[in-house]
Structures are given as structure tokens and as C-alpha cells.
Amino acid sequence: MKVKQIAVFLENKSGRMAEITSVLARNGINIRAMSLADTADFGILRLIVNDTDNAKQILKDNGFTVGMTEVLVIEVVDKPGGLASVLQTIKENDLNIEYMYAFTQKSGETGLIIFRFDEIDNAITALSKSGVRILSGEEVYAI
């Protein structure tokens, strides 16, 4: 149920994103989803890729600070209110969201939301119980 996500530390310097993406491209790593959190001084790039362990090692070897965390990828119906009901469940269960980002699939029928929870196991229990579909790692890496 848990999906592995890579996080990379970025100084606010021009060209760093390009370096990361080209390093990954050279090594045949495909990016599934990404989001960039930025502050005035630095950024954190979060990536879900098709080959997490390999990507992490490659970035490390290229001098980047890389971390690995586990996130949940949830499927929501691509229509008004699709996300609202999921967030309602999260609220009712008192789960704290560290951050979230979204992407859509080719089919266009469902959207995928990536959640980083403080307490991932509690989140899995609560969301599963309320019938939310949580994608497995294999599903996400293969998208």
C-alpha cells in the first residue's frame, strides 16, 4: 500500500532541476509524479519514479542529498467532490497531512492524490475502512 518517494534537497541555484532530470534520463529512469516545495532559500523536490532504489543511488552518486519516504497514493473519482469526500475521512480520523500533490491518469476517469501522512499506518486503516482505493507500489511505479 505504501509507495516509495524520493526527496532531493535543492539549493536555489539555476540549472539544478535540469541536472536532476537529465541524470535520471541518462539512466533510463522514468518520473511518475513530482512536486517541488520551495522556500525563499531552498527547495525540496519529491519524485515517484519507476525504479526508486536505482534512482536514489544514481542521484547520490551525483552528489545530491537524497531521502526516501513512504507516501500513500489514493484514487479519487475525477468529478466535483471526488477529493472532498476523501479529505472528510481524513479530517474525521484526525490524520495530519504533511503535504499532498495530485496527478491524473491517461484514462482521465480518476485522479491520483499523493499524501504524506505523519502516521501512515493509521491513515491506511482509516482510508481502507471508508472504502477509499489505495494504490499499491507496483501499480504506481508501472503507470
Binding site: A7, A37, T39, I44, R46, T65, V66, G67, E98, R116
Partner: peptide, 8 residues
């Protein structure tokens, strides 16, 4: 390093 801005 942390993936959360808050921690850094």
C-alpha cells in the same frame, strides 16, 4: 535532510 520543509 527531510522531505518536509517544516523540518528543515
Amino acid at each position: 535532510f527531510s522531505d518536509a520543509v517544516k523540518n528543515l
